[in-house]
Amino acid sequence: MTAFDLFLQQAINGLSLGAMYSLLALGFTLVYGIMELINFSHFNVFMVGCMIAMVTLKLFGLNGQDTILTGLPLIGVMLVGFFVTMTLCGGIGVFIERLLLRPLRAVKGPAPMITTIGVSYVLFNIILLTIGGDSKNFPNPLPPIAFNIGGAVLRLREILIWIIAVLLMGGLTYFVQYTKLGKAIRATAQDQEAARMMGIEVDRVIMSAFFIGSALAGASGMIFGLYYNLAKVDIGFGAGLRAFTAAVLGGIGNVPGAMLGGVLIGLIESSSGQFLGSAWSDVVIFSILVLVLVLKPAGLLGRLAPNKS
């Protein structure tokens, strides 16, 4: 492989990882933008999403990489898989918000954040106790089609991941920009009190942000499974930290920022894995997080929500 091929290959890998992180980062950014809360349960909603997707695909009789689907069945299975995963994860998000966070709405200090840490723990351990801690084989029915671009390889699953990510992010952008609820979300992020006085049901806005964010985390979890062909109980931490870094890098509270940050983090991870060894990629990502927070806390695209300090 030439240096250019190597670069191209890492760009392809990085874009796929980036798509995954972007979707996950959106959940952090939506919730933070509205409530100024770092939602630690998001880490493991992602992991649960990966598990739900695995179980759903297995229910279709898919197992490992044995069964290859093409054409309509493939599209159908993928659609159903994403739909089920996203709906269930969104439901989990709503459940967390409605039952555990809403009672703490008026409480100042770290209580809501500590609650989300507790939720994250509970989700992790429920999966650990029911599905187990070992690495599971994630069903992947995609035909092994690959294109050679110079020395780099572009596989079908990467194309699929990109398409899904673009569709979801495009849909979200449309939703936030042009729908009534989307406008309500943006208004609430700017000023909760004013939004409430203008007749916006803030509770409903927060709940929908949790639903959307968690659903996107579910999609991201399924993409993780398709990309790595595995599902494991401890994947939430690394992916979550990267996605959070992505959200901060793009400017937390900022929807396009989360998308941009995710792609950048994906590219950084794939290239640092190439040049430093994957054992150090956590260190690199974490250093970026600290550097951005210290040097440019508003991120690349700036905060959407005003700084309420």
Partner: peptide, 13 residues
Amino acid sequence: QLFFGIILIGMML
């Protein structure tokens, strides 16, 4: 660890 999580949530609520 499941109990840890439950304790965290329960205490906060």
